[in-house]
């Protein structure tokens, strides 16, 4: 009975994190972007610096009518947001937050193959955007969908390779194991892997500057063109959840997770802090860099990231064997 309760509690906790963390990231994006662009951003909703802006947005989305275009492939169209969202929820299950006041590791489910699990879940998640592009019955969406597919195929490889490098160094695929095995000098040894992983993750999430598939100026949001209301909100949520998952993975794999002072008790806080920092980097990248052209996207993947990742794997191999 205690076990079942434990599992239920963990699930609830993950669900709570899933519902709150992306909102926090979204709010941070609003405010950070605004200040970077010398404006104040949302101020009205909720009073203090517009803290309830995203809640208000959510209420607005819920109120909106969900429209399905006539030309759309109805089932695919309607299923796409869920396919985009759910895998990140599942992925979050396996991402550890670290020791919680000496009460053991705060994690949904510790898996022997945690890294694989998360990567697999993320790779399923991108299918959602693809389905949106295919099912909308809109040529902008179609082109956007094709760009998504090309981008996913290109960036999956360097991302997995970079993750594999860390797994090799740690000698395990368990995320907790990797974070435990982390040592500070990995920051230097795994730096190329860190960069590759982060950049490839950005591309997988189609975050700027890799948002050529969405490209609101030319493709009118690409696969998301026809979506409105709650379904669009789910896509948005999936995007921010994706940022959280990416930031969490980056933290656990490359930044030592809960490594820090008093980590036995405050490990979870360290992890959250690092996740916030990485998320801020993601937002910063959006503001700082212009959108890459489609050919630049693929060139970056195949000509820079893949060789870099392979070099990282080689280096790690040498280090591990030595």
């Amino acid at each position: 009975m205690g076990e079942l309760l434990d599992a239920l509690l963990r699930c609830l906790l993950v669900l709570g994190a899933f519902l709150t963390l992306p909102l926090l990231v979204g709010q941070m994006e609003h405010k950070a972007m605004a200040h970077m662009q010398s404006r104040v951003g949302p101020m009205a909703a909720g009073g203090f610096h517009g803290w309830a802006q995203l809640v208000a947005d959510g209420i607005k989305f819920v109120q909106k009518e969900s429209i399905t275009p006539v030309a759309a492939d109805r089932r695919v169209f309607e299923l796409a947001p869920a396919v985009a969202l759910v895998p990140y929820l599942v992925a979050m299950l396996a991402i550890p937050l670290g020791p919680f006041f000496g009460q053991g590791n705060l994690i949904g489910q510790d898996l022997d193959l945690g890294l694989f699990f998360v990567l697999a879940a993320m790779s399923v998640g991108v299918l959602g955007t693809l389905m949106g592009g295919l099912g909308s019955g809109n040529k902008y969406s179609y082109i956007g969908g094709m760009r998504v597919a090309a981008q996913l195929m290109s960036y999956e490889l360097p991302m997995v390779l970079a993750a594999a490098s860390v797994a090799m160094a740690a000698g395990t695929l368990s995320l907790i194991g990797i974070a435990d095995a982390w040592e500070p000098w990995w920051l230097l040894a795994q730096l190329p892997g860190l960069i590759v992983f982060f950049v490839a993750g950005l591309a997988e999430l189609q975050r700027p500057p890799f948002d050529a598939p969405l490209a609101d100026a030319e493709l009118v949001m690409g696969p998301l063109t026809e979506y409105g209301g709650m379904r669009f909100a789910m896509f948005l949520l999936a995007e921010y959840a994706g940022i959280v998952v990416l930031a969490g993975l980056t933290t656990v794999l490359f930044l030592g997770g809960w490594a820090g002072p008093w980590s036995d008790h405050l490990g979870w806080a360290w992890t959250l802090l690092k996740i916030a920092g990485v998320s801020f980097l993601v937002i910063w990248a959006r503001v700082a860099y212009p959108r890459l052209r489609e050919d630049q996207v693929n060139a970056l993947a195949w000509k820079v990231l893949v060789p870099l990742a392979l070099a990282q794997v080689t280096l790690t191999t040498v280090l591990v064997v030595w």
Partner: peptide, 12 residues
């Protein structure tokens, strides 16, 4: 299977 098939093959 999930990673290779769903993530790569099907996308391809």
């Amino acid at each position: 299977q999930v990673l290779v098939y769903v993530g790569s093959v099907v996308v391809l």
